[in-house]
Design a protein around this nucleic acid. Structure first.
Length: 193
DNA sequence: AAAATAAGCAACCGCTATTCT
DNA sequence: TAGAATAGCGGTTGCTTATTT
């Protein structure tokens, strides 16, 4: 804290004001060295946090809204090919971030894959706590790669088996998840100029 | 209607790779 | 060339919201 002469560093969810500061600063100065950017912009955040916020949420190219069925298919194909190489996968989905794809995979796809796995194995239906959810990977050997999946879905059948997953496409509209839309922020930013 | 549980997601952490001095 | 600083990645956490009991 300040009392110790250490600059206070904010953590946790970003406020609208912080977002505007970051957008405004980058609009005027461009992206740069994130630590000094945070400092110059007057944000009490570390550079890492600013970079993440910018790349995952504020960047104008970030595509909001639900993953389409085409995107879902692509994610599954690429994950089958490369495993958890989220940033690599994200490069093939314009406007989608590695974080978004990772979350999507873990929350929407993985459970179906694992269920399929289980049904094949022994048809269990144990409930998992949220903590269990986070430890699912630990069941898998050292690192969770495409291999366990490939055991169940070999490449030629991989996409064909999409139907078997019965993944609900576009089930939830989370475009307003963060209280204000990016359109709002950008129009505010334009007004500020 | 309330409590418990599950799901979804933003953001953090720790580590490695790359770049700079 | 070595060490420091920065960028990037993947795993994980914790909060909020939705669903179920």
């Amino acid at each position: 804290m300040d009392a110790e002469g250490v600059v206070e560093v904010r953590k946790g969810p970003w406020t609208m004001e912080e977002d505007l500061i970051l957008i405004n600063y980058i609009a005027n100065h461009g992206e740069g060295v994130w630590n000094s950017l945070a400092l110059s912009a007057g944000l009490k955040r570390n550079g890492k946090s600013c970079r993440l916020r910018w790349l995952n949420y504020l960047h104008p190219n970030v595509r909001r809204g639900n993953i389409t069925s085409d995107e879902q298919l692509l994610i599954m194909e690429l994950h089958a090919k490369w495993g958890n190489k989220w940033s690599k996968i994200a490069k093939h989905l314009p406007g989608r971030t590695d974080n978004e794809i990772k979350n999507y995979w873990r929350t929407r796809i993985q459970k179906h894959v694992k269920q399929g796995h289980r049904f094949n194995a022994r048809q269990t239906s144990s409930k998992a706590t949220s903590r269990d959810r986070n430890q699912v990977n630990e069941e898998a050997p050292s690192s969770y790669t495409m291999d366990p999946i490939m055991e169940t879905f070999s490449p030629p059948n991989y996409t064909k088996n999409l139907d078997a997953f019965s993944l609900p496409l576009l089930p939830v509209d989370h475009s307003n998840q963060n209280y204000w839309s990016m359109e709002d922020l950008w129009s505010m930013q334009l007004l500020n100029e």
